[in-house]
Lab assay of single mutants.
Amino acid sequence: LQLFIKTLTGKTSTVEMEPSDTIENLKAKIQDKEGIPPDQQRLIFAGKQLEDGRTLSDYNIQKESTLHLVL
């Protein structure tokens, strides 16, 4: 599924993920695209901070969801 990652600067990146992927996997993919180390990334979806060990489906993240990346 395609996700949009929006940064505080207003920049939006697109990443392709599976519902079974963990937040950790997602942060690794963001690191590949943006060069931001996972330990500096905080991802927010629906007002919640996402935890590394959980999966996208745990948070009911659907295709074309927008996640907010806070550093």
Rank of each mutant, 00 (worst) to 15 (best):
G47A: 04
F45T: 01
R42A: 08
R42V: 15
P19C: 05
E64C: 12
P38V: 15
K11R: 11
L1R: 03
L71N: 06
T7I: 12
T12V: 14
I61T: 02
I30Q: 00
D39A: 12
K11P: 06
P37W: 06
G35Q: 05
N60R: 07
T22N: 04
R54V: 06
P37Y: 05
L69H: 01
F45L: 05
D21H: 05
I44G: 03
V15L: 12
K27N: 00
P37A: 09
E16D: 10
I30H: 00
D39S: 13
S13M: 15
D21S: 09
D58L: 03
G47S: 04
L43I: 13
G47N: 07
Q31V: 04
E24Y: 14
E24G: 13
K48N: 09
L67V: 13
I36K: 03
D21I: 03
T9K: 11
L26G: 00
T12M: 12
T12L: 12
K33N: 09
S20H: 12
F4E: 04
Y59L: 05
Q41P: 01
T66L: 11
M17G: 05
V70P: 01
I30F: 03
A46R: 14
Q31D: 05
P38I: 15
E34H: 14
L43R: 00
S13T: 15
E16P: 04
M17W: 09
I61E: 02
Q2M: 14
P38R: 14
E24T: 08
I61V: 08
T22P: 04
Y59K: 01
L3Y: 03
T55I: 08
E34C: 14
L3E: 01
L56Q: 01
T66E: 08
E51Q: 10
K33C: 06
Y59E: 02
L50C: 02
P19I: 09
L69S: 00
I30Y: 03
Q41S: 04
K29P: 00
S57C: 04
K6T: 12
Y59W: 02
T9W: 14
E16K: 08
L43C: 01
E24I: 10
E18I: 10
E64Y: 15
R54Q: 09
H68P: 01
F45I: 04
A46T: 05
N60V: 04
G53H: 14
F4R: 07
K11T: 10
E64K: 10
L1N: 04
M17P: 01
I5N: 00
V15Y: 15
S57M: 12
K33R: 11
L43K: 00
L69T: 01
N60H: 10
T14M: 14
G10H: 05
K6Y: 08
K29Y: 08
T22R: 07
T7Y: 14
D39M: 09
Q31H: 14
I23K: 01
G53K: 11
K11Q: 10
K27W: 03
S13L: 15
F4K: 07
H68I: 15
K63H: 15
G10S: 03
Q2R: 15
K29G: 03
I61K: 01
M17Q: 02
Q40M: 11
G35D: 05
H68W: 15
D52Q: 05
K29F: 06
G53N: 12
M17H: 04
R42K: 14
K6S: 08
S20V: 05
I23T: 04
G10P: 02
I30E: 01
V15S: 00
Q40T: 08
G35C: 04
T22C: 03
L43H: 00
L3C: 02
I23D: 00
E34Q: 11
G10Y: 04
D52I: 06
P19G: 07
L8D: 12
N60A: 08
L56S: 00
L69V: 06
N60W: 04
K6H: 10
F4Y: 13
V15I: 14
